[in-house]
Each structure stands twice: as structure tokens, then as C-alpha cells.
Design a binder for these strands. Sequence first.
DNA 1: GATGTCACG
DNA 2: GACGTACGTGACATCA
Length: 946
Amino acid sequence: MADKQHLYLVDGSAYIFRAYHRLPPLTDPEGTPVGAVYGYTTMLWKLAEDLDKAEGPTHLAVILDKSSHSFRNDIYPEYKANRPPPPEDLVPQFPLIRDATRAFSLECIEEEGLEADDLIASYARAAAAKGWDVTIVSSDKDLMQLIDSGSDSSGRIDMLDTMKNQRISIPEVEEKFGVAPDLVGDVLALMGDSVDNIPGIFGVGPKTATKLIQEHGNLTAALDAAADMKKSKLKERLLEHREDAEMSRILVTLKEDCDLPVPLEDFALDGVPSEPLADFLHKHGFTSLLRRLDAGTGSPDRANDLNPAKAETAGAAASAKGNSQPLPDMPAVDRTSYECVQTRDALDRWIEKCLAARVIAVDTETSALDAMQADLVGISLATGPNEACYIPLQHGGSDMFDEKPEQIALDEALAALRPLLASDAVLKIGQNIKYDLNVLARYDVEVAPIDDTMIISFALDAGRGESGIGGGHGMDELSSRHLGHQPLSFKEVCGTGKKQIPFGEVPLDRATEYAAEDADVTWRLHKHLKPRLSIEGGTTIYERVDRPLVPVVAMMERNGIKVDRTQLARLSEEFATEMGKLEKQIHEDAGQEFTIGSPKQLGDILFDKLGYKGGRKGKSGQYSTDQAVLEKLAGEGAEIANKVLEWRQLSKLKSTYTDALQAAINPKTGRVHTSYSLVGAQTGRLSSTDPNLQNIPIRTAIGRQIREAFVAEPGNVLLAADYSQIELRLAAHMADVPSLKEAFEQGEDIHNRTAREMYGEVNRDTRAQAKTINFAILYGISRWGLAGRLGVEADEAQAMIDRYFERFPGIQRYIAETLETVRERGYSETLFGRKTWFPRINSKNQAERQGSERAAINAPIQGTSADIIKRAMARMMPALHDAGLDKVRMLLQVHDELVFELPEGDVDKAKPVIEKIMAEAARPAVQLDVPLGIEIGTGTSWDEAH
DNA sequence: GATGTCACG
DNA sequence: GACGTACGTGACATCA
């Protein structure tokens, strides 16, 4: 195994000037000039591509000039004095060069008082002395002095001009200067350099300089020989300007013994993350590179393209198999290892440490659960296992007399943390980081780029865990499952019930253990889970769909939506009055008072006391009194059933909507801010909580009044855009059903089409039945289920199913194939590759198995629909921005609908943009056989917008 | 905390 | 021969 080390030293400063002049004046989406950055990035890219080649680097660093002043100015004040200031549009690119470098996970070296050339010389010599080969990426002729063929004990040094794609070693130097590298300095001293303002000997150019050195052997000899020369202009000049030449010799001499600010070993190219790269490329609009990044990934992770982290990949493969095992290479969690950061010095140290680490976990501690109201209490950071800290910011009770613990002032700490948290070069990992994004956004702190262990877990394991809050992707569960470690629980730290205290009142030592542990565990989970994405095929859905969505959904949550409190209050009163009347009548009909809202009591009244027919149901032995049962009773003339139904509707609307929504209005913003879960639904759909804004009534007139209370600010309107019949369209595509596809292509009403195919004629009844069947198909049909819905016998329902399969060939095949693959692999997949696991698909329990089968038939369709609208959401704001529509706000998502708020005057311009983004959201990843129909409406209320 | 019910796509 | 009957959610009231 060849373990020859090969160090590449990139002369970044020289490169950027050349790139600037060679490339067109590009700007990024934000208008920042990035032409030189682009050139620089491309150059790094090319180097990265050579990683595995024989001549490729094992170590790499970029060297930059820190300031224009160096020790050479002390010798000769005019040094580089005639150099014009850098062009105005190059200046802002310098910091981006550093970002680009870090995005590639490369070291970036610069030192005050030293020029890049000196650092390069020192590093090159140091590496060569250790026997490493060195390649200097530059075309600077000064650096050619360093070129060396190497020996048994020392490595060789050569140069690479990436613009000309030319290697420079001794023959090339000899061709250019006519002398060996160690005499290049002497030639340069004679000829001078107008760019650096090195005088040399006036009137002596490269030709003469070379000739003199060749003839006399070195500079001193050449100068000494001048006295004996025959009279000439040259002799005069050599004598007259001898001192200039001698000083020039010093100026062109590279300082080869600088202290090395970063040890050579740190330049090793291994185990580096590449996520920041994609974000950097994206942010600056380097789409062609981004495409290449993606093209190179396919299934393998992009990290493999950019670094030779083979060890890491192999380890990940092992851990993916036994994913309940703790990682062998991580030390056990040690809560005593955490640091409580209470001084500015300590904070600065941690910030440096994070910048160096490039992959950090971040967690915020707050005073409450609601990200829109919670106060920031502290921040924890982790850079590795047991490398974590907690930064208390607002600890100490609200009581003025309490002594507050020592902590850095909030403003000061946030100002120090802002650049780190916003740096392209540092990946910020969170567990449900959307929460932290929203809390920090309220303190004007931006966090990007990000990764989220909860969402990575979801991309890998949706459907595998127990259902419940977090869906099996909560931190405690992930930690137990993957790390074999149980972190401190919030309860253990803050207590529970009445004794619960706010986090800000937890003593700092305890708070540090809890908070830093969360960051530590998050960091470890990321290390464990992230590599599984590429191995198990989750990269595409995570990188292309879910991860980009996090900041978008966070923004939607912060936007919130205005609700008219007066309108809701009025409805609450109306509903209460009506319920009171109904209650009285129901009690009269029952002949006694009872709690209508208690299904148990109601069942007893209806079926025992009043003697209506209706069986028991469920294990509880309780009568069912649901809508279907009550409607049946009402059909048989039971007036009380109708009244209960009406009462229930009002009760539901009042408690769940008109009362609850008023309480949900945020006092600071005056709006209602829901919280979306990106891991709530196994199919990939979002879910909405606190309050749920995805189930606001629409189906009944009385319920729609609640929608009227969702309004736009004055001068604005709400715009609702929804996908029409998206799941049926997807079914038509995925099952490849010719007549359904044709109907959608021709814009035909799909239920009419189904009715025509099934019954030969279209009327109200046949259309309604067709609609039911269409949905039944999407949901995984059974003869009994369909029979129950249509009110026919199971035999008849089966005949209809058979007819459906006959008229729409493809459906039956789709169902069979889907089930076959799910049984075999254990999971279903959407068109975009999202997996949903069905662990009970082969269960011996028939009910369980059949339930899984129905879900498995539905999941690819529902999930693909979710993928599509998510893609639309991720693209929406940039598209609106490009159209100059910065006042359009995206507020809500309701599975196949997006709700916006925008100035009335922007409607005409915004409509086509929104329509286009939604209609084309599947492309280019997937080319659907059916068009995606979009319906758009506007109005001052959500009801009107439909 | 479980159960039943019902709001949405 | 029994099972239990359409997919995916979240919130609320009641009751143990």
C-alpha cells in the first residue's frame, strides 16, 4: 500500500486575481459579485476530482494573504506600492473565498505580516523535509525557486498551474529562466518585477538577467564581474544599481522558516463533511456545479466525490446493519465533560472550536414549548462526542432579588454567535432544528446550513417505530435505539406537574448537564444516521425534498395567519345559544337530563332507555353512537338522533375552532401560528398542531363560517392554490391507466369519466358512486368496505370492483406489484424515492396484515403527492423573489393546497408564478404522464379564496 | 391515558 | 371459523 503523502498548497490570493480577470462579472442571487469565487470554486473542484489519482493530494491547504503589509515593506516601503487597490467588485469576494474554502472542508491559512508565498515556502519545505511530495498550485514565478526534485530523505516539490493545466518542475523552470530553481531568485533580483515594484537593475530584463547568471554562476559573482566588463550601458547599470539588485535579492527571497500556524497533519483529506458545499453552491447560484454534485451522487453520497473518506463509509455500513448497537468508536456519554460557558473568552474559544470542527450540533433551551413565544434561556453546542458546552444566557429567576448566575450578556453572546450560526462553512445539526430556527429568528439570528437528525431518521425509518409523538423519531427514542444511551429527561431536570420549574431556574451545573448532553447526543446521532442515508438510499429525498423544506416551513410558521377574533367570538355565542336550545329538547326527548357529550350515557339512553335498535361495538362493550349510527336512527324517524347530530356539530365547531382559535392568537403578532411536523405522517405528509390548521371546516355551510374568520391584512388578499385531484392523477400515472390519463389530459371531470366507464351513463347517482369508488381505489379497496359506503351487498360491491379493474387496466397490476415489493422489501416507495416501512405486512394476524396492505397501497400515492407539494414549497419563495414579488407570504399548507397572503396589486403577477411552480414541481426528477391541474382563488377571507 | 367522535385532505 | 371492514392526520370531551 503506497502511503506516500502528497501535500497540495493552493496559492489562493494569486488565484483569485487571475480568476477575477479571466471570468465574466457574475453575481449570485443576492447580487453579490462572485465571478472570481466561481473560478476559485471550480479550481478547488478540479483538484478534488484528482483525489484518487496517483499524483492527487492526500493533504491540502489554501494559503491566503492576510494584509497588504509584510516584513518586506519594512525593508523597502515601495514594495508593491504601485499595485492598484483591488477592483471594487472583487473586494466583497475575499471573504467568500474563505467561505468557499471551508465549504470544501479545507484549511485556510493566513498570517499577519506574512505573504502567502512565505507560508507556502515554509510549509513546502517542512513537508518535503518529512519526505512528503508537495505540489504548489500557483503560477507565481517567485515560487519557482522552491521546486526540487527531492532525494531519498526529502520529497519533491513541483507546481501546478491550474489555468494552463500545466505541471511545472525543474525542466520547465530551466526553460523559463535558463537556470536551476535555486538560482531563480538571483535572476529575479536582476530583472526586477514591475508588478511587485521590485526594482532589480534598471534596464535589465529576463534575457539579460538569465545570461548574466548563466555566465557568472550567481548574483554576487555577476555584480562583482561588472567592474571587469568592457564599457557598456550594461556595465554602467550594474555598477550604478548594485544596491538595488542586492535589496531585490532580499525581497524575492522567500521566508522558509515561518512558524506553521496549523500543523501539516491537519491538512489531511479525510472524514470531512460535504453538506456545507451544496449549501454554498446553492446560495451563490452555482447551479452547474450543484448539478454536477448531484449527478455525481445518484445513490452514493456526495461526500464520496469530494473526499476519500472510505473508512467512514465502511464504518457506516457496519453500523447500518446493527443499528441498535452503540457506535464502537465513540466514548460513552460523560456528563461531567461538559463546559458551562460564562465568560466572553470561553465563548470565543468555543466559537473558534466550532469553526474548526465544521460540523456542530446546536440546541436552544427556552422558557416554553411554543417557538413563537418562548424566551431564549441558553444555547448548547457540540463539536464531537463529549465535546459540548452550554451557554446560559437568561438564567436566574424573574425575581429581582434573586442573584443571577454569571453569564454573558444576551446581546453580546448573540452578536458573537451570529457569524458562526450563519456561516456556510459550518454545518449546524439539530434535533427538530425548525424549533431552534424559529426561536433564534426572533432574536435576528439566522442558522444555516442545517441538518436535522429527526428528519434524517424519518427519511430512513418512517413507519418502523412506534407511532406516537415524534413518531419514533424523538431524541430520547433515537438515543436509546442508536446509541444505547438514555439522556437526562426534561422531567428529571425541571420536575413535573405543579413542581415543574422553568429551565431558566435550573441551577447551571444541572442545566449544563442536560443541555450540553442534548447537543452531544444530537452530534452523535448525526454521525450515526447521516451515513446511512447514502447507503440505504435516503439521500435524494432528504437532500432534495425534506431538508430544503425546513427553513421554508419555519418561515411559514413565523408568518402565521390573521384571524378575526370578533367574528369567532360572535360564532361562539351563536353556537352556544343554539346548543342550549338543542340540549333542552334532547333532554325532553330523553325524558331526563344527561351529558350529551358522553357517548356512554348517550348510548345507554338511546338503546336501553328508548329502546332503539343498534348493536354493541368494540371491546369496551359500549354502544356506538357515531355519525353513521345516529344518521341511521334518524332515517328511522328518531328525532332525538337528528338533534344530537346537530348538537355534536356545534359542540365540535365551538370547542375545537371558535373557542380554541381565539385562544391561539399570539398576543405579540396578533396572528395564529401553527406548528408543522415534518415527521408526523408516515407517508411524508406534513401534519399541523397547536392549533391544527389543516382541518378547518369547509364541507358544511355552518362550518365554513369559521373559514370566513381567516382573513388578510388590509390592502392584502388571501390566495389559495390547490392541486386538483392530485392523488387520482398520480394513480393514473403510477398504475399507467390509459383511459384515466386520457381523461386528465383532456381536462375531463374524472368522476364523470369513471361513471361513464362503469355505468355507461353520467347522472348524479352514478357520478357519486364513481367518486366513492375512485377514493376506495386510492385507499386500498375491500368489498365489505365499499359495500358499506355504497349501501349495497358485498357481492354487488365485488362486481363493481371487478368492473373497475376491467375498465381501468393497470390498477389491479399496480396493487399486486406494490404489495409484492412491500412484502419482499418491507417498505413502499414514492416516485421520488421516499420510503415507508410496513413491519406488519407479513403479519399472521389477518386484520393487522390487511390493514398494512391497504396502507401500503395508499402510501406511494399519498406520499408522492406530499413530495410534489413539498418540492413546490421549497421552490416557491425563490421564484416569487425572482419575479420581484417579495411581499407575497406563504402561510399555510393543507396537503394539496397552499395559502398565501399578498398585496391586492400583486395578485395578477403572482398567480402565474405560483401556478407554474406547483404545476412543474415534479420535474425534472419525474416526468408525469398526466398534467398537474392547479386551481387558484383569491379573496379577503380563506372562505372567499376558495 | 384511553376511548370515542369528528374536523380536514 | 372469526376477524372487522378505506388511506393519512389532530383536538376535544368524557371517564377511569
